[in-house]
Amino acid sequence: MHPAPSVIIFTTLSGLGFGLLTFLGLGMPGVTGWTAFAFFTIAYLLAVGGLAASTFHLGHPERAFKAFTQWRTSWLSREAWASAGALLVMAIYGFLLVFHDTRLAPLGWLGAALSLLTVFTTSMIYTQLRTVPRWNTPITPVKFLALSIAGGALLSGEVSIAIVAIAAAGLVVVASWIVGDTRFAEAGSDLSTATGLGRFGTVRAFEPPHTGTNYLLREFVYVVGRKHSAKLRLIALLLMVALPVIALALPFNHIFAAVAVLSHLVGVFVARWLFFAEAEHVVGLYYGKR
């Protein structure tokens, strides 16, 4: 799949933002007043910034509100509802914290649940696609949730939770790579089933329909990036997990904390890039590519 920057930025930032909102909703850290204002501003910038970035890849962003209509079948529509609900509930909760020094705990819990639900609905947009076997497995939502919780713990300054959550997220990400690497073969689609011609012999793509490229090849066939995937996986793990965990384990210091956050953020970007670049869509088979 083509790793579109808008979608990578969206899933990374909004994942972090909703992770932070989850922790704020649970009262971690138990801030009020202007400190709370700072935390909520960061969370909203990330979550809303991510959502805004995702509208850049729409052909008609002006009709985006129509995406609320099909929640019965569409995970993208459910994501629209969950995110709107989470942002609304957390806005009320945050308003009371900042301006009235009041913490309505149940409202915070609801906001936290909706925030996690948003991350889950985002992950299901990818998980539901049988056409992309690497994503079409239960570990995809686990990965999105684990990364979001790890990032939320890190941003909320819950150091001891963050160390555990980041390490756990690292394990989940590694597991998702191991599971993902064999998914395409397991799903059982190849040029033989794609054309139905396998019963007559070995099928080979002889001539593509056009000499030039097209939307399908641009969007779904991305071979270049996979060359370096082993190296990039290592870089992702170092930046996303190793460095932040070390920085957090050291005696607290603002510089170390900043290093942990920045390194984790860049690491998640790399992992998200791989999430798209390594994913193979079955339509590539028709072009003799994967």
Binding site: M1, H57, L58, G59, H60, P61, R63, A64, K66, A67, S74, L76, I125, Q128, L129, R130, T131, V132, S189, Y215, L216, E219, F220, H281, V282, V283
Partner: peptide, 11 residues
Amino acid sequence: IGCGLCAWACP
């Protein structure tokens, strides 16, 4: 809205 998701879903 041109989100492209349906094209992703078509094998």
